[in-house]
């Protein structure tokens, strides 16, 4: 059975796209067919991790939403770009990086209903096991739709007072949408923090399972900015934590 996973964060800069890419890679490494849709149309970024540049994108999610093509035409197979042999496959539907296209979305918006049709079609045409949606921060209409139709939702947050209020609202709203599985990922945790303690405290405060507490360090930032971390450093403790998060997202609960 295929699974739709949304990865969301209330604010930007939490490392949402990075987490999405790494979890997708781990799932594909286990032999699954995975597609990532970058719905962060206003500030696309996940393509960078797969080494895709503006010129590599001939068709994007924008083209589909404006009725210029089928959504599968915008899906790129990025498996080979990772330069690590994977048992499964990873596809990416990027958002347009062209300033004009971004401005047009801001000006005109798009038919949110098309997104759901697109997801549906990707699942079928690409015979996907997992569809991962890299959402736009905040809680606008298209984000709510993505969350609503997901089988699992991962909310990425930092242990930072700026993230607490928004994350609490997001958790509450997602609960009202009856998302079957919801998990928190605490990212960029200063290494001096005790991970177990942070996990316990966050779970108690938000009433929601924490799938992983990921540490933050300068070294990690340097390594992570350049490609998909888990494939380059398969034995790093960070990779183990992301694998744990991936496993929790794929499971149906305890």
């Amino acid at each position: 059975m295929s699974r739709v996973i949304s990865v969301h964060s209330f604010r930007g800069g939490t490392g949402k796209s990075n987490t999405t890419a790494n979890i997708a890679a781990l799932l594909a490494a286990e032999g699954r067919r995975v597609c990532i849709v970058d719905t962060d149309i206003l500030s696309p970024g996940i393509h960078v991790l797969f080494g895709i540049e503006e010129d590599d994108v001939t068709k994007s999610l924008n083209d589909y939403l404006w009725g210029k093509c089928n959504i599968e035409d915008a899906a790129q197979d990025v498996t080979e770009r990772l330069r690590v042999p994977l048992k499964g496959r990873i596809y990416l539907v990027p958002s347009s990086m062209k300033a004009g296209d971004i401005a047009r979305v801001l000006r005109e918006g798009y038919d949110v209903g098309l997104l759901n049709d697109g997801y549906q079609r990707l699942l079928e045409v690409l015979k996907l096991d997992v569809l991962m949606i890299d959402t736009h921060p905040g809680l606008n209409e298209e984000t709510l739709l993505s969350i609503a139709i997901s089988d699992a939702l991962a909310i990425v947050m930092r242990p930072d007072s700026q993230d607490y209020q928004g994350t609490a609202v997001t958790v509450e709203v997602a609960r009202k949408l009856d998302v079957p599985r919801m998990l928190l990922i605490v990212n960029k945790t200063p290494t001096s923090f005790n991970a177990a303690e942070v996990k316990a405290r966050v779970e108690r405060t938000f009433g929601c399972e924490v799938a992983a507490v990921l540490p933050h360090s300068e070294e990690m930032m340097t390594l992570a900015s350049d490609g998909v971390f888990v494939l380059r450093y398969p034995n790093n403790p960070m990779t183990k934590l992301l694998q744990q998060a991936a496993n929790r997202l794929m499971s149906d609960g305890d």
Binding site: M1, S2, V4, N70, E72, D73, A75, D77, N116, Q120, R121, L123, E124, V125, L126, K127, A148, I149, D151, P180
Partner: peptide
């Protein structure tokens, strides 16, 4: 929508609603 999706999947896995094109 969620339910629908899972049903579609089990019933007609090869159905392409828009066109009959192969996976890209």
């Amino acid at each position: 929508l969620r339910q629908q999706r899972h049903e579609t999947e089990t019933d007609i896995p090869d159905n392409n609603p828009v066109s009959g094109s192969d996976p890209p």
